[in-house]
Design a protein around this nucleic acid. Structure first.
Ligand SMILES: [Zn+2]
Ligand SMILES: [Zn+2]
Length: 1154
DNA sequence: AGCTCCGGTCAG
DNA sequence: CTGACCGGAGCT
């Protein structure tokens, strides 16, 4: 790099560049592309995929262009060769650091340019200041050159060239240029020296130094010219100079160009050259700073120069600038220039048309232009020439591209370089021979030529690959999408080249066809949609065929095509063959893909579609991307990954292409998307019957079948209103669902319709939905059956018969595995307590009453339930009330259980006016309460009778036992101690109740075994029941014992029992008292026959109590109850409860607790 | 606004 | 796999 002159500057430049490069490397993808895109439309051309590939593609086009241009103009070749060499060298050196060169490079260039421009702008300003010295132009030029070239010795040559240009420019004189010239001149002239320092900063300084040297050579001429111009006031010269200056980069090129440009011998050329120079510079990578400067300068120029505005407007950046410059420079030539501009602006589009025209000198010019643009993505438009140039630059960049990731990439570059070089060299050589020979091949060093050729080839291939890939990349490499993708592309290219066919079979693409030919036409594996692949192939084929069709829709393709054309001449045929082969392979692949697709089903399709979409998107994005840009500047993850991969030399983890990814979507949606076809099939299968069903769906129907499900999600199936279930209008009130209903005092947690009312249709749908296959359908299908089954214990008998019901038990509830969330019934309690209190208050009746009351409650609860059930539709209000009551009761129970003591106390007061008395009685009462509390649950327990009852029963039993004990415990005892004991007992019971549940289970079993009440009772009697029975029935100590036994049954019970037992034992006398109660109960229980039914339900065992209770309500019971004590309460309660249906007095209908 | 209860989710 | 829970659709 150390150009003789450039030595100092070069380092500086280098440093600068490197900095830039590093920066670029950091944010290869984004910044650059965004920038470039923004500035230049070019990017858009590349398209999103292009963006990735775009970079590569960019590179691609360039090469092509270069080739063409070169071929066309030997002089250009020469120049290019030189420049290229330099560029290459520089690239090699620089780019290694700034790997991105190809695409990124440009991108960066643009970006960097921007950044640089900023500085550059300042430089400009400075330049303006500096303007005075004409020499600056040279310096400026030199700068760029320096940046790129300077390092390398060639500068001088460049300079020489440059020098020439000025004259040319002078020739080309452009009026408009004046403006530009002014600015430029300012920059150039004064700046040259000054600007250098100012403009480029370090590099600038370096450049300045170098430049001067250069300037001397050529510049001197220019200066002279410029000076003359300035002096003479020939705007053109100035303009030229300025332009060159502005381009900054261009200078070198200009310098060079002049040499060549002389041939062209036109201002335009000079301008073009300048552009070239820019490009070169850019390509070289060192130039970036220059480039930006150029842009800025150009922009400025443009701004200033109204004329060029167009170009400026379009790209507004370097590309435009150059074009503008050109335009400005050579108004006469304007046509061509304009064309070029268009191409620049329009890039691809226009290009094609223009390309043809371009042939010849124009092209050369354009080429230059393109070059300039190249910096930016715009180059692509430039067509062949530009592309070629770009190609070179790109090629340079290509290697860099790899590095683009960043310096880290270095390794990769080696590979690529080696590979590229190795292979390319040949092609290059050939090309060089063919092309280079044409022009001033001599000037070209073989290596350079090789490089170029190679690059071109590469680019071409890469382009193709990119094109193909574009979409695929998007798919495959999400990461790649961004600008950074270019880097990837570059890799791929390389890889491709070497790789040859990777996964032909793969669903997607793959093809890495190597062109042994110098040009390695590599078909990169592209996960293209079929169409895409084909297109690519076609395009390729066309290209190879030498279709000159410029206007091909795919500008890029065309560009590539052109480029290809060039290459084609030599190894084109081979390429064609290869391509054809590749095509075939691709086709095969596609077929395979399709197969897979079909197999995979919708997914693939979705994928493909997505791929295409993406591609479009990419394009759009690329276009838009510019606008959107990546204002954000940081590196993207992908970039980071890439960089890391590069740095580590390890392949990046990729998602298999063939796997469609819709990760963002819920599975079902993915299916829907991907499986559209298959999905339909699948769904169809499911839905077969669904059609009908659909009609059922309220809304869903309208939705498409595929989506049906989903759609239906929001929608609900509605009742058929015709099925048996639907015909049932009343809630059973007994089933779990009913019990869950607020109207039945349920918590409303289940929120399901009565099991008896389940609509068959819905059930069916559910089944289908859930696991269609199997099982339960039969069961569920018939709600009744289900309910029955669930009911477990429940006898199917007419529920209405209440009596008959037997066990409805709701045995339904098999203990659910899931813990049911406890609900606080505090409120209920409150209400209940109130009720009780009220009731109790009314009648002071002690235990008996209380018991009765509780029993009544329980019964009531149970009854209610039953009643509700029976009544079935009965008054909802009542039912609900009852339900609530039950709940309350429940709650109460619980609460009470826990707090028996307190409760008792309350009760006590309520019950008995005289506390003491009460106490005594309270004892019983308490017991009763407990019992009541307990029982209530039972009855209340909306749970399916069985378990709940069992539990309840158990609890009751325990409670009963406790109560019994309590009750047994004579009044006095009960008074306090008892109460306490009871309380404890109660608590224990409460707990016990749970445990009892166990016991209850036993009971349950008993209960479950709905054996006639008697049996149950027997059971009951046997254990808890006994207790109860005993208690209730007979306060006998025996019972107590039994109770104890029962207690034992329930561990807690045991405790309770023990307590009770103790109590019971103690109560001996008390028991007597209770006896009556018990008797009453018993009797009640017995009596309740009618109720009994309910009772029976209530609880096989607790039933006893309940039964008794329930019975109690009966007048008979009442009587019974009365026997021991008239429990006003009891009756009342009982009544209520029992009749709850009829009329719940206290019970607050509790609106739903909710 | 309130109620019913479908349909989905999650604990067990 | 079952059932408790719950959100919220849909009807009154
Ligand atoms: Zn029901
Ligand atoms: Zn129905």
């Amino acid at each position: 790099m150390a150009a003789s002159g450039g030595g100092l500057p070069s380092p500086a430049n280098v440093a600068v560049f490197s900095n830039q490069g590093t920066a670029r490397a950091r944010f290869p993808g984004r910044p650059w592309p965004s920038r470039s895109r923004h500035r230049f439309e070019k990017r858009p051309q590349r398209g999103r995929s292009g963006s990735d590939g775009g970079d590569a593609s960019v590179g691609g086009p360039r090469p092509i262009n270069i080739g063409l241009t070169l071929s066309e103009d030997p002089s250009l070749l020469r120049l290019l060769g030189v420049t290229e060499k330099y560029g290459r060298q520089t690239d090699v050196g620089f780019e290694s650091s700034g790997s991105e060169e190809e695409v990124d490079f440009t991108g960066f260039g643009t970006q960097t340019v921007c950044s640089h421009q900023l500085p550059g702008s300042s430089p400009l300003s400075s330049p303006t200041q500096a303007k005075p010295p004409p020499a600056p132009d040279l310096s400026l030029q030199s700068k760029p050159l320096i940046g790129k070239i300077v390092p390398r010795s060639p500068k001088p040559t460049l300079i020489g060239k440059i020098v020439q240009r000025p004259p040319k420019e002078g020739r080309g004189d452009r009026v408009p240029a004046t403006r530009i010239a002014i600015k430029l001149p300012a920059k150039q002239v004064t700046p040259t020296p000054a600007t250098k320092s100012t403009g480029r900063h370090p590099s600038g300084s370096a450049q300045t130094e170098v430049a001067p040297g250069l300037q001397r050579k050529v510049a001197t001429k220019e200066h002279t010219t410029q000076g003359s111009t300035s002096a003479s006031g020939t705007k053109q010269d100035k303009l030229v100079c300025t332009l060159t200056v502005v381009k900054g980069k261009g200078r070198a090129s200009r310098l060079k160009g002049p040499g060549k440009g002389s041939k062209h011998a036109q201002a335009d050329q000079s301008s073009e050259k300048g552009t070239k120079g820019h490009q070169q510079n850019e390509s070289e990578g060192a130039s970036p700073s220059h480039v930006p400067t150029k842009r800025q300068q150009k922009k400025k120029v443009v701004l200033e120069i109204g004329t060029s505005t167009e170009a400026g407007a379009c790209s507004g950046q370097a590309a435009h600038k150059p074009s503008q410059e050109n335009a400005v420079d050579a108004p006469p030539k304007k046509a061509t220039l304009k064309k070029s501009r268009k191409s620049l602006f329009a890039r691809r589009r226009q290009r094609p048309a223009t390309t043809a025209q371009k042939l010849g000198g124009i092209r050369l010019r354009r080429v230059f232009y393109t070059y300039v643009p190249e910096l930016v993505p715009a180059a692509p438009n430039q067509e062949e020439e530009a592309q070629q140039l770009q190609g070179q630059s790109s090629s340079n960049s290509a290697a860099p591209v790899v590095s683009a990731r960043s310096s880290r990439v270095i390794k990769a570059p080696k590979r690529f370089l080696e590979e590229d070089e190795a292979v390319p060299t040949r092609s290059q050589l050939k090309l060089a021979k063919s092309q280079g020979s044409d022009g001033e091949g001599s000037s070209w060093s073989p290596s350079s030529s090789h490089l170029e050729v190679y690059k071109n080839l590469k680019k071409l291939t890469s382009k193709l690959a990119e094109k193909k890939k574009g979409p695929s990349d998007a798919k495959v490499e999400d990461l790649g999408e961004g600008p950074g993708s270019a880097a990837l592309v570059g890799k791929r290219r390389r890889a491709k080249i070497k790789m040859e066919e990777v996964d032909t079979p793969g669903v997607v693409r793959k093809l890495a066809v190597l062109l042994n030919s110098k040009v390695s036409a590599v078909h990169t594996q592209v996960p293209l949609s079929e169409s895409v692949l084909e297109e690519v192939l076609d395009t390729e084929a066309k290209i190879f065929e030498g279709d000159a069709r410029i206007g091909h829709s795919g500008d890029v393709a065309e560009a590539s095509g052109q480029s290809q054309r060039m290459s084609l001449t030599g190894a084109n045929r081979r390429m064609l063959h290869l391509l054809k082969r590749a095509k075939v392979q691709l086709i095969k692949i596609d077929q395979q893909k399709q197969l897979k697709m079909s197999q995979l089903g919708s997914r693939e399709l979705g994928m493909v579609a997505s791929g295409r979409r993406r591609r479009r998107r990419a394009d759009i994005s690329t276009n838009e991307g510019n606008a959107q840009g990546q204002p954000l500047g940081g590196p993207r993850i992908k970039h980071v990954c890439r960089a890391a991969a590069v740095a580590l030399g390890q392949p990046r983890a990729m998602v298999p292409d063939d796997i469609p990814r819709l990760s963002a979507l819920p599975l079902h949606e993915r299916e829907g998307i991907a499986l559209s076809p298959a999905a339909t099939l699948v769904d169809g299968g499911d839905e077969d019957g669904s059609d009908q069903e659909r009609s059922q769906w309220a809304l869903p129907q309208e939705q498409t079948p595929g989506r049906w499900r989903r759609a239906h999600v929001g929608l609900r199936l509605r009742r058929c209103r015709t099925c048996r279930g639907c015909r049932v209008q009343k809630d059973c009130g007994t089933c779990t669902n009913c019990r869950d209903k607020p109207k039945f005092g349920g918590p409303n947690t289940k929120r399901q319709c009565c099991t008896h009312k389940k609509c068959e249709r819905i059930e069916k749908a559910k089944e289908g939905r859930v696991i269609r296959p199997f099982k339960l359908q039969a069961r569920r299908s018939s709600p009744a059956v289900l309910s029955a089954e669930r009911g477990g214990c429940r006898v199917k008998a007419a529920p209405e018969d209440g009596l008959t019901v037997n066990v409805d038990i709701p045995g339904d509830r098999r203990h659910s595995r899931r813990n049911i969330k406890p609900r606080s019934y505090s409120n209920l309690l409150r209400s209940e307590s109130d009720d009780e209190s009220d009731a109790e208050e009314r009648t002071v009746k002690p235990a008996h009453v209380v018991k009765l009351a509780h029993a009544a409650k329980l019964a009531r609860a149970a009854k209610l339930a039953h009643a509700a059930k029976l009544s079935r539709g009965g008054k909802p209000s009542h039912a609900t009330k009852l339900a609530h009551a039950t709940k309350l009761a429940r709650g109460v129970k619980l609460a009470r259980n826990t707090k028996l003591g307190s409760l008792d106390i309350r009760a006590a007061p309520c019950d008995v006016p005289s506390e003491p008395a009460r106490y005594r009685q309270p004892g019983p009462k308490g017991s009763v309460v407990c019992a009541g509390s307990i029982p209530s649950p039972i009855g209340l327990t909306p749970t399916p009778a069985g378990s709940t009852l069992a539990t309840a029963g158990s609890t009751l039993a325990t409670a009963g036992s406790t109560l019994a004990t309590a009750g047994s415990t004579p009044g006095p005892v009960s008074s306090t101690p008892v109460g306490s004991t009871l309380a404890t007992a109660g608590s224990t019971l409460a707990t016990a109740s749970s445990t009892l549940a166990t016991a209850g289970s036993t009971l349950t079993t008993a209960g479950s075994t709905p054996a006639p009440v008697g049996s149950t009772l027997s059971l009951v009697c046997s254990n808890p029941t006994c207790a109860l029975a005993a208690v209730s029935s007979t306060p006998n100590p025996a019972h107590a014992a039994a109770g104890s036994t029962l207690a034992t049954a329930g561990s807690t019970l045991a405790t309770a029992g023990s307590t009770l037992a103790t109590a019971g034992s103690t109560p001996g006398p008390v028991s007597s008292t209770p006896t009556p109660v018990g008797s009453t109960l018993t009797t009640a229980g017995s009596t309740p026959a009618p109720v009994g039914s309910t009772l029976s339900l209530v609880g096989s065992n607790p039933t006893c109590a309940l039964a008794a209770v329930s019975s109690t309500p009966n007048p008979a019971h009442a009587a019974v109850s009365s026997t021991p004590i008239s429990s006003s309460l009891a009756p009342a309660v009982a009544r209520q409860s029992l009749t709850s249906q009829i009329a719940p007095p206290h019970i607050i209908p509790t609106s739903k607790r909710r």
